[in-house]
Design a protein around this nucleic acid. Structure first.
Length: 883
RNA sequence: GUGGGGGUGCCGGAGCGGUCAAACGGGCAGGACUUAAGAUCCUGUGGCUUAGUGCCUUCGCGAGUUCGAAUCUCGUCCCCCACACCA
């Protein structure tokens, strides 16, 4: 069979007939299935992508057949650094590079047989798309969510651009794993994501996402409840000169404060030491610290360094005068950028105090032990009883904490506060291949937003690549006039982080050709939110937070009326190469869909991918393993060539209904691997003659996995329209006949038994096979056991009851039957058929068995007198005698 | 360090209290077909066996709960992923 021809044929037909294009239809229930859109890299897509899209495609096809109006689009996250790097390296313009890549991707994706509505395609690097990035930026600005700030930022010397915190991995650039990130001070555009921190955290409870992703987001947002405490700052003589505030979650330890540390970036540090004898040392210290990247100097476990500032503060709770320090372990970004130090009850403070010989004071002790400062090797961070804490002595620290906060608030020393780890989103990039930030910098009017009517600010084509930001090399772009005063002005040359583009793309699919507004509200109302989102876990803290943030802002701006963009999320596992390592070009273990498709056909590849393992687990590609799927596909095709269309028997009916039920459940739960097994099992049970309806239902069940060959076979069966558009089969519970299936299994077992006996005896020729099935009493015995079991449900009780009867000797059998009954009491357990059923089953299949073994079959009932021998026999394991 | 996910037969992996010597695939071995190879089909694939599937031993390691554990609890070792001094 020419797989290639079949694939092309159906892909063409689907496209020509617009089979997967959808429109809003109020009468039909919608489902929006979406995979995270790819960055169209020049190296094209590999099996890992194919796996991701296949997962979505199966679900989309399944839902479509179930009668839903399925929106299943595709697009490209086409702005970004690699295109620009290609420009620098190979001299190709990013636009050309990107367009080539996109076309390549489309071609590849189409050849995978994915059922996208291609008419809704988007590409973020087109003015038609990024115009709305600029539009939203201005809207955000109007809402006060945008600000400019000079900030120390992560600078990658290789990318020559600023990186977001999320793009720095272990002090290195996320793209250049060996390049140290440096620090640089620049004016940057920020978006106030922190304003939505609380809602982003709270609404995690609303969505059906994998728990681990939610946990990652919770940690990323990092909410802490605590108190901000204010302290008076004094000089050597004790005169008040200033004040300082710190954030703490451990208000219970305030009586143990012995010093206070500021981050090196804290403006008060230089203010206080200016003109004093400490100035030089502090300056040098800060200089030294700032040379290192934030990540490097704040890595956990690093030795802590600091310098005394020559100033003191007063602890309002004790009246003590304690020293102020500056140190490298304090994060300026978090809390107030200054921390109160309680060395006895905080590990970091403990280490610092030990190093610089700062005083320590125990204020919490374990219940029945006394802590001595001199003996302490670590800070005591557990709960305990308050000591050395004035009127709070003797209380549990948990209780005392609240009382202390109350006291602080009453006296005006502090305020209850919630702080978050989440930082504002730095969106400025000093790069070319991105959305120009729609701002004009006027010497008189400062930063002026580009008026809406002038959007989009088009990214100029002619620029020079090399050092720094290419946009600066296009004078025509840079030089402009101020929209406010009309004077000479310059355009902002920063572009937006591409996460801005990907934060709302899923909305644009609902209305991708609109040039009047980002999207039509009605259309979005029909299609959104995304019902099923599919993608990797690596986006947990970046894209998935930004997209949620965007949705909430757009809701508050009146564009949307829902809170969360993605109702359900499915995280697929990573596809590894044959060597067990992550698929990557550099490792040389990349498998390309084209290669596999050429050899086996894409349906085989799809089927193999999903039968390998559960799709949410990491899986390992195997060149040998695919043979199994290939055989299966070939078997199906051959079977359909030979099968006689007629009537299906009861057994097939039963199996079919069971298969429909299970496959439906499995697809719904993304257990595609189990669905594939069920399909194989059912296929194996098909006979030489089956009804057309049975065969059609089988093809329908297989269709989401193997869309091309099922279309082909569907047509061969004499159907005209697409199987893709036919309805998903329904199952009839009443047709599931466990008994019929059990007797079939029984015959199967007998066959196997004959084989194993035959192998053991190794007779040249067998003339006669005598099958002796257990005596009637044996079956009665089992049924009796069953009856007793039905009286009492508790397994313990059941067994006790049984031990009282003369069945004591059959412990083994009992332990086999009990669980069956307990698991499902409505059905007759498979293993307890009666003698008559088994006899009939054997007689029915007698000829087949005779043919198989080329011997005469004699079936006998064991005589009651042979009780002793038969007693050991399991009723469904008959004795076999060969001659 | 913290959080999450794992360790199952020759291999990839199901199973997640009882129908478990463990689905399904791969590999390997034997057989059928063929002049032969390939393809295809059948059978076997922990050990012992009186052949009855009977017994024994297995699901990282050690203990426990239970009539019963690959599955639950605790401890322990190893692997992967994410976060990284968050006061």
């Amino acid at each position: 069979m020419d797989f290639h021809a079949i694939e092309k044929k159906w892909q063409k037909k689907w496209e020509e007939n617009k089979v997967f294009e959808v429109k809003e239809n109020q009468k039909k229930k919608k489902i929006y299935v979406l995979e995270m859109f790819p960055y169209p890299s020049g190296s094209g897509l590999h099996m890992g992508h194919a796996f991701n899209y296949t997962i979505g495609d199966i679900y989309a096809r399944f839902k479509r057949m179930q009668g839903f109006n399925v929106l299943y689009p595709m697009g490209y996250d086409s702005f970004g650094l690699p295109a620009e790097n290609a420009a620098i390296k190979a001299g190709i313009h990013p636009k050309k590079y990107t367009n080539t890549s996109i076309n390549n991707f489309i071609k590849q994706q189409k050849s995978l047989g994915l059922s996208y509505d291609w008419s809704r395609m988007i590409s973020t690097c087109t003015p038609e798309y990024y115009k709305w990035n600029q539009f939203f930026f201005l809207k955000f600005m109007e809402k006060g969510l945008v600000y400019r700030k000079k900030a120390s930022v992560n600078w990658c010397p290789k990318c020559k651009t600023v990186l977001a915190n999320e793009q720095v991995h272990n002090g290195k650039c996320w793209r250049h794993k060996s390049t140290e990130v440096e620090q640089k001070e620049l004016e940057q555009w920020f978006i106030k994501t922190t304003e939505y921190a609380e809602e982003l955290l709270k609404d995690l409870d609303k969505i059906d996402w994998p728990e681990r992703i939610k946990i990652m987001q919770r940690n990323w947002i990092g909410r802490s409840e605590g108190v901000i405490l204010n302290f008076d700052v004094v000089n050597e003589e004790g005169d008040k000169i200033d004040n300082i505030s710190t954030f703490t979650t451990r208000a219970d330890t305030v009586y143990g404060i012995t010093y206070l540390v500021l981050a090196v970036e804290h403006p008060k540090v230089m203010e206080w030491v200016k003109g004093t004898k400490y100035e030089k040392e502090v300056k040098e210290f800060i200089k030294k610290v700032k040379k290192k990247s934030i990540i490097e100097r704040t890595a956990e476990g690093k030795e802590k360094n600091g310098v005394f500032l020559g100033k003191y503060f007063i602890n309002p709770f004790t009246g003590d005068k304690c020293p102020l320090w500056v140190a490298d372990y304090v994060l300026y970004e978090y809390g107030t950028g200054a921390v109160m130090a309680v060395p006895t009850h905080d590990e970091r403070d403990f280490q610092f105090a030990k190093k610089y010989n700062l005083p320590m004071k125990v204020v919490i002790t374990p219940k029945n032990k006394k802590l001595k400062v001199e003996e302490m090797k670590n800070a005591y961070v557990e709960n305990g009883v308050m000591i050395n804490s004035g009127k709070f002595n003797g209380l549990s620290n948990v209780v005392a904490k609240n009382k202390i906060i109350e006291l602080a608030e009453k006296k005006g020393w502090g305020k209850k506060t919630i702080v978050y780890k989440l930082k504002d989103w730095l969106i400025s990039r000093q790069r070319y291949w991105g959305t120009p930030i729609p701002i004009i910098k006027c010497p008189k009017c400062d930063a002026v937003p580009v008026p809406y009517k002038d959007l989009p600010v088009i990214l100029p084509h002619n620029v020079k690549f090399g050092e720094g930001n290419p946009l600066l090399t296009n004078k025509k772009f840079v030089e402009t006039t101020c929209p406010k005063c009309g004077g000479k002005a310059k355009r902002e040359t920063d572009t937006m982080d591409t996460f801005f583009d990907s934060s709302w793309y899923y909305l644009r699919y609902a209305d991708n050709k609109n040039d009047k507004e980002p999207f039509n509200k009605k259309k979005v109302k029909y299609w959104l939110p995304v019902d099923q989102y599919i993608g990797g876990a690596e986006h947990a803290c970046m894209h998935l937070i930004y997209a949620r943030f965007f949705t909430k802002v757009l809701r508050d701006l009146g564009f949307l009326d829902f809170d969360e963009p993605f109702k359900k999320l499915f995280n697929q596992g990573m596809l590894h190469g044959d060597d067990g390592a992550v698929m990557s070009k550099s490792r040389g273990n990349v498998v390309l869909p084209e290669t596999i498709s050429k050899k086996y056909g894409i349906d085989t590849a799809r089927f193999f991918l999903i039968s390998l393992a559960s799709p949410d687990k990491d899986l390992r590609w195997s060149d040998e393993g695919i043979e199994g799927s290939y055989r299966f596909i070939k078997k199906i095709i051959n079977y359909f060539k030979k099968v006689k269309i007629g009537k299906s028997n009861k057994k097939t009916e039963s199996k079919l209904n069971k298969t429909i039920k299970l496959v439906t459940e499995y697809i719904e739960g993304f257990k595609y691997n189990l669905a594939s097994i069920q399909l194989r099992e059912f296929f194996e049970s098909l006979g030489e003659e089956e009804s057309k309806s049975t065969l059609e239902k089988f093809l329908k069940l297989l269709h989401p996995f193997c869309p091309h060959i099922t279309e082909e076979l569907w047509e061969k069966l004499g159907n005209e329209s697409f199987i893709s558009l036919h309805s998903w089969p329904e199952y009839d519970e009443s047709k599931i006949d466990e008994k019929a299936e059990a007797s079939e299994e029984f015959v199967e077992k007998v066959r196997k038994d004959i084989h194993s006996v035959k192998n053991l005896i190794k007779l040249e020729k067998i003339e006669e096979i005598k099958i002796i099935i257990a005596p009637k009493w044996k079956y009665d015995f089992f049924n009796k056991v069953k009856k007793i079991l039905e009286k009492t449900r508790s397994p313990k009780e059941v067994i006790k009851e049984l031990m009282k009867t003369n069945l004591r000797n059959h412990g083994k059998e009992i332990s086999k039957i009990v669980p069956i009954i307990i698991k499902d009491n409505s059905k007759i357990p498979k293993t307890v058929l009666n003698q008559k059923t088994e006899l009939n089953a054997l007689i029915e299949n007698k000829k087949l068995i005779e043919k198989e073994f080329n011997a005469k079959i004699i079936i006998e009932k064991a005589e009651e007198s042979k009780e002793n021998k038969a007693r050991q026999a399991n009723p469904n394991k008959p004795s076999i005698i060969l001659r």
